[in-house]
């Protein structure tokens, strides 16, 4: 009995809010250019080469990186390394229960993430090998793909893959003419148009841009500027997270060396 039975019907105790902008302010009290509360942590999966967990408000994403490891035989020889991305939403992550297999949207997210990260990774440093980036969205509270890309870049850094720069990504939604940064799921549901931008802020290169809905040239420029500002903010937060992780690892190593020096190992 796998997957959703065709007979059962979802029922929600609360309906989605009809309007997400009340008197020109967002429902959760943020300004139009404010992120939700951001939490980033690396090294959360003990089995993976590198991993990261990101929580932006109600969006929770976990990424695990394995590799570089041997490429699949079917993929053939390649002088450059390969990056394989896989994005999956947990069945309970969305309001309505999802299916167990991979839906079209997930395949598209995987392709978008691959384009976003490939420009940043130094693929020549692991020829003939593949780095697998597996992403699982535990709760989809809005802008899942943007959060996933940011977390994936952190996980790649945690795994020690050479990167030209950290990639950070954010989404912008246009609701009733106003541009909202880092929209929640309710805001995305009511948008006229949206865009996702992934860029490498220090090198100032855009690695991925996906837009939905109609945008005029001027609106697109405004949206891009807002998103680029958001990415710069995220970049600072991501670098801080990596610095803290490195400091913690160094402290742990120093403590272990101290303990080892005190008692010689019996091995």
């Amino acid at each position: 009995m796998a997957g959703r039975d065709a007979q059962s019907v979802p029922w929600f105790a609360e309906e989605r809010p009809q309007a997400v902008l009340a008197d020109g302010a967002r429902l959760d009290g943020r300004s139009f250019e404010e992120f939700r509360s951001v939490f980033l942590k690396t090294g959360v999966i003990s089995q993976a080469s590198g991993s990261a967990y990101a929580e932006f408000g109600r969006t929770k994403v976990m990424v695990g990186v394995y590799g570089p490891r041997q490429s699949d035989r079917r993929q053939g020889y390649s002088e450059r390394g390969r990056l394989a991305c896989d994005v999956k939403l947990a069945t309970f992550a969305t309001r309505q229960r999802g299916i167990f297999g991979q839906s079209q949207e997930e395949r598209e997210h995987s392709a978008a993430m691959q384009t976003a990260l490939e420009a940043a990774a130094n693929l020549d440093s692991f020829p003939k090998a593949t780095v697998d980036v597996y992403c699982l969205v535990l709760e989809a509270g809005g802008s899942e793909l943007a959060v996933a890309i940011t977390a994936a870049a952190l996980a790649l850094a945690d795994a020690g893959i050479e990167l030209f720069d950290l990639v950070s990504a954010c989404s912008v939604s246009r609701v009733e003419g106003s541009l909202l940064l880092d929209p929640s799921a309710d805001e995305t549901h009511r948008e006229d148009g949206g865009l996702l931008l992934a860029m490498m802020p220090t090198v100032n290169e855009v690695t991925q841009l996906v837009s939905r809905g109609q945008w005029s040239g001027a609106e697109l420029k405004d949206g891009l500027e807002l998103a680029m500002g958001g990415c710069a903010q995220l970049d600072a937060a991501a670098r801080q997270c990596l610095r803290e992780a490195a400091a913690a690892a160094a402290a742990k190593q120093a403590a272990e060396d101290g303990a080892a020096a005190a008692q010689p190992a019996a091995a």
Partner: peptide, 23 residues
């Protein structure tokens, strides 16, 4: 003339001004 959908493909990164020019 309104942009209805945008996707970037391929591996290389793009400068934002170049991207707007492409649009």
């Amino acid at each position: 003339g309104a942009v209805c959908g945008l996707t970037k493909r391929r591996q290389q990164g793009l400068d934002p001004s170049v991207m707007l020019e492409m649009v």
